[in-house]
Amino acid sequence: MLRLSRPAKIALAVVVAVVLLFLYAPLGLVVLNSFNGARVAGWPIDDWSLRWWGAAFGNDGVRAALGTSLVTAAGATAVAMVLGTLAAFALQRHEFFGRSSVNLMLVLPIALPGIVTGVALSNTYKNVLEPIGIQLGFFGLVVAHATFCIVMVFNNVQARLGRISPSLEEASADLGAGLGQTFRLVTFPAFRTAFVAGALLAFALSFDEIVVTIFTAPPGVETLPIWMYNNMARPTQASILNVVATVVIAFSMIPVYLSQRLARSIHLR
């Protein structure tokens, strides 16, 4: 076991603290300034207020964008939960020609730059589907988000399935349980926490996605990150942007935190 000297531990702790401060201090300032009652955000804060929170949630554009983000993320997560789980079972439980290639194709969207995925899907929608009369509209945006959300569920479920002993399912079958009953009472409870953790990560990833959304959102549809992007250059919206950014941070961090707790509970079993 590697043992660090006391000076090395102190130096490492200082480096970690500096890195964390560099990463999270700007986010902290955004959250604090969302409670700044002044018209122009500044530091230190002299007027603590919920003024801009009221203004933000009274803004029709913000409410519509928040609703769009929630529906899009929920839809993409639902698709990812179904397809990611099915893909995990297919690749974990069965041997077939091209298995490694299919695995690569499932993981590839999360590794590709968002702009590549966005351009590819946009070209497909406009140059392939629309000429033959297929208009995906909002569903196309959900599908676009699902392409990179699937891997979150897939990776979590596949890893968990690899740790489930086949003897449990065999014992269930020997006792007379059918395929559906075995899945419901034995298999699903065994990978349920990994399934939920993957779904939470997929939701967080979809909720704050902007690059793919820019290329695939139908005209007039704004998610919360797109609304922020469109209003960045408007000085009158600066204070409201701090509130919206705080909401995005919360909706991104809470699912990630919960998924980490679930993942930790899996490893402790």
Rank of each mutant, 00 (worst) to 15 (best):
L2Y: 14
R3W: 10
S5C: 09
P7V: 01
V14K: 05
V15G: 13
V19I: 14
L20P: 06
L23V: 14
A25T: 02
G28T: 07
F35S: 04
F35W: 12
N36A: 11
R39P: 12
W43D: 11
S49L: 00
S49I: 00
L50H: 11
W52S: 01
W52Q: 03
W52K: 02
F57H: 15
G58S: 12
N59G: 05
A64V: 13
L66C: 06
S69T: 12
L70S: 02
V71W: 05
V71L: 08
T85L: 13
Q92G: 07
R93L: 12
F96I: 13
F96N: 15
R99D: 05
S100K: 10
S100Q: 14
L104G: 08
M105L: 15
M105D: 07
M105G: 14
I110P: 01
V116C: 14
T117P: 06
G118R: 09
V119F: 13
E130D: 06
G137V: 11
L141K: 06
V142Q: 10
V143Q: 08
A144F: 05
C149M: 01
V151K: 08
V151R: 08
V153G: 00
F154T: 06
N155R: 14
A159F: 14
L161W: 12
P166G: 01
A171F: 01
A171P: 03
G176C: 00
G178V: 04
G178Y: 02
G180T: 02
R184G: 10
V186E: 05
V186I: 12
T187L: 09
F188K: 10
F188M: 13
P189V: 07
A194E: 06
A194M: 03
V196Y: 10
L201A: 11
A204K: 01
S206L: 04
S206R: 03
T213Q: 11
I214A: 08
P218V: 00
P219A: 09
P219C: 03
G220E: 09
E222S: 09
E222R: 11
T223E: 01
P225Q: 03
N230E: 15
M232P: 05
A238R: 13
I240E: 10
N242S: 10
V244E: 05
I249P: 04
F251R: 03
I254G: 12
V256F: 00
Y257H: 12
R261E: 14
R264Y: 12
I266K: 08
H267I: 15
R269N: 15
